[in-house]
C-alpha cells in the first residue's frame, strides 16, 4: 500500500445557476475587468488515501465522489492524482 494525494474538483454543472460565480463575475467587472465572460465557483477537496496503485486510489476517490463528495444533480467532479506522498505505509 502506498499513500496517494488526490485532488477532487467539484464544480457546478453547466447551465446550472451559480449564484456565487455570478456575484464574483459582477465584482470583477466592476473592478475593471469587463473581459471576464463568465465565472463559475467550485471547490477542491484534497484526499490522502492509502491504496495499492494509482488506479486503485482514483477508483476509491471516484466512489467517494459518487457517495458523498459531489451531488450529481448540481455538480460534476474530476479526480486528479496530485502525487504519491512520503511516509507510505507498507
Amino acid at each position: 500500500m502506498s499513500r496517494y494525494h488526490l485532488e477532487v474538483r467539484v464544480k457546478p454543472r453547466p447551465g446550472l445557476l451559480d449564484p456565487q460565480g455570478k456575484a464574483i463575475h459582477g465584482a470583477l467587472r466592476s473592478l475593471g475587468w469587463p473581459e471576464v465572460d463568465d465565472v463559475r465557483v467550485g471547490k477542491a477537496i484534497y484526499l490522502y488515501v492509502d491504496a495499492s496503485s494509482e488506479k486503485d486510489a482514483i477508483e476509491k476517490a471516484t466512489a467517494m465522489c459518487r457517495k458523498l463528495l459531489a451531488n450529481p444533480v448540481t455538480e460534476d467532479f474530476e479526480v486528479a492524482l496530485a502525487g504519491r506522498l512520503q511516509g507510505a505505509r507498507a
Binding site: P19, Q20, A23, V73
Partner: peptide
C-alpha cells in the same frame, strides 16, 4: 434530497 428520498437539490439562494 441528499438521501434521494426526494428528487432535485437545494442550492445557494439566488441573491446570495
Amino acid at each position: 434530497c441528499e438521501a434521494h428520498l426526494l428528487p432535485g437539490a437545494l442550492i445557494r439562494n439566488e441573491a446570495l
